[in-house]
Amino acid sequence: MALLEVSDLWVSYGMIAALRSVSFKLEEGQVVTLIGANGAGKSTTLNTLSGLLRASAGSIRFNGVEMIGRRPDRIAAMGMVQVPEGRQVIANMSVAENLTAGAHVRRDGRTDEELAAIYARFPRLNERRTQKAGLLSGGEQQMLAVGRALMMQPTLLMMDEPSMGLAPLLVKDVFRIIAEIKERGISILLVEQNARQALAIADYAYVLERGKVVAEGTAAELSNNPAILAAYLG
């Protein structure tokens, strides 16, 4: 049984169908990426998985359990944790408060150990723990957003454009961190416009176009597909 199995998912904004029968799956321990142009439905997919948007049809099975109709906070507590687009760190809270803001959903009670591990991995956050998160640089905010999600003990981490707006050097950092998270056995659903980097790290990929899955395959397969190459990796 796949960890996440999305089948025939439809979502619409009013009269406009944003997702049209989207199906994909993710096996435990995998990194799966959704790539596609702006407006293809990548963020819509993540927000529907997180319960922020309501699907009009279809099913989302996580560990075999139907997730459609559940509240976002319940979904997060069940281990499907999203790092939202644009990081969304809480600007007027300190770094430490941001990190603990979601920690109440942990099921293993190892909050302190995780916090220590995050501070050890991201010394910049440690140095700035009492500073307001709004004062951090873009790269530091991304680290904070990832750390905050890890504090919630995710089984599946859903990342929306983690490299967006970051300098090339920081983008490399972000992908290194994603690889480390995978090493820990946490499954990752990665939404990226930076398709080349995403494919380099992903076990499997789906290509979204105007709300539909138009191609799928392993990173190697998609990298050799001339149409994909032209459209997304050009």
Partner: peptide, 9 residues
């Protein structure tokens, strides 16, 4: 929305 993603009711 951010709060809801953080597991806050």
């Amino acid at each position: 929305r951010t709060a809801a993603l953080l597991g806050i009711n």
